[in-house]
Simulated assay, not measured.
Amino acid sequence: MDRSIALETAYLSKPGGRGYNEDACGFWSNDSAACWVVSDGAGGHGSGDIASRLVVSSILEAFSANPSVSSDRAIELLRHANDAVINAKQSGVTKDDMHATVALLMVDRATESAIWGHVGDTRIYLFRDGDIAYRTRDHSLVQSFIDAGYSSPSDLRTHPQRSLLTSAIGSAETIELSVAGSLVGLKQGDAFLICTDGWWEYVDENCMLSQLAGSIEANDWLVSMALQVERVAKAENDNFSAVGVFYGARPATTTVIRPYPSGQ
């Protein structure tokens, strides 16, 4: 537990049914600010793990050098990660067209507020008062179908083309990235979940809420959701990773199950 403002962090990453883990996650904090990053890499011959580790390390190193928190800073960090992966490919680190998704969360301790951004289908959820206050919208082909009215939200977890992305870190062309437009004030009892598609595909929003309601510590919440993945996922399922962040003590809440909001 951090001493200045109460921020509790837990993380969990497993290979699932794969031979190696191409997910990466990490966080950095000091007395003024904190940053959490989750990335899901992809590429032939294991280069996806190189991409995801590079995304996480490049963002955290840049943030630690200048721990300012704003929408512009989030955009800078995402673009910095994209440049890092492109430069690694051009320098011959791998011959594969490696790329990655990413989601980052930053907190300003002085103002007790947060900002977040993402590229791809690694998600950020904000839970407040037993409900989902926010969810990022995926940069994926299926999400574009939903936005155009050709598919329903349930297809995000079941569509045969659900893994096809419309934007990813490591693209030489201009990437599509989404960042919250302004700082969001934190409230005691808020919880963030940052997770890869291998996680949220098998843990739906109702499960996230119900497990959160029964969890006092962030680690308990992640472990209970990971058990859900292991119960229902196929033997060859993807790597699955998540970071949980609790702000303040967990209150006694009544979970409200309702359609969740989403946005960019």
Rank of each mutant, 00 (worst) to 15 (best):
D83N: 13
E201P: 04
P259S: 11
A51Q: 04
D129N: 15
A249R: 14
G43D: 00
L126W: 14
L104W: 10
D238Y: 05
E76Y: 13
G198C: 10
D129G: 11
D220M: 10
D40S: 04
R18S: 02
E76G: 07
D83V: 04
F240W: 05
C35Q: 03
M106H: 06
T255Q: 10
R162H: 06
L77E: 04
W221N: 08
E176Y: 01
S140W: 10
P160S: 05
G149D: 06
G214N: 11
D96I: 03
I115T: 11
L227C: 02
R258I: 05
S47L: 03
K187Q: 15
A133K: 14
F240M: 08
D220E: 15
N30I: 11
N66W: 05
G43Y: 01
F27A: 04
S215V: 01
S58A: 12
S113E: 03
L183M: 13
S29V: 00
V243A: 10
E22W: 11
A100K: 08
D23E: 12
V56I: 07
V55M: 00
R73E: 10
V55G: 00
S241K: 00
H139I: 08
V184W: 15
V107C: 13
L7F: 01
E61Y: 03
K187G: 01
S210F: 02
A33E: 09
V85C: 03
A249V: 09
L164M: 10
G48C: 08
V256F: 07
T253E: 14
T9E: 07
Q143F: 07
P261T: 03
S215M: 00
G181A: 13
I194K: 00
D147W: 11
G120H: 10
I146Y: 05
P15D: 00
A24W: 01
N30R: 12
N239P: 07
A24H: 02
T122K: 07
I146S: 01
G17R: 09
V69P: 02
G189L: 03
T196D: 06
V232Q: 11
S71I: 00
F246A: 09
P261V: 05
W199M: 11
A242V: 05
W28N: 03
N82R: 07
S163Q: 14
P67T: 05
A81V: 13
A62I: 06
V229F: 02
A168E: 09
R250T: 14
A6D: 12
R18L: 04
M225N: 12
D72S: 14
S70W: 06
T94W: 00
T111I: 09
Q228L: 12
D147M: 08
L177K: 05
S13M: 04
Y260G: 14
A100F: 09
D147N: 06
A42V: 11
D121Q: 06
L141W: 05
A180P: 02
D190Y: 07
A110W: 05
I50M: 13
S68N: 12
E205Y: 02
L105M: 13
A233R: 13
S58Y: 08
T255F: 00
G198I: 11
D23G: 10
R79F: 06
G120D: 09
C207Y: 00
M1N: 11
L212C: 03
F145W: 12
D129S: 13
G170A: 13
V56Y: 03
W200P: 02
S57R: 14
R3P: 15
A148Y: 08
F127M: 15
P259I: 04
Y260P: 15
D2R: 13
S152V: 15
A88N: 04
T254R: 08
A100N: 09
V37W: 05
P251T: 13
G41S: 07
M208I: 15
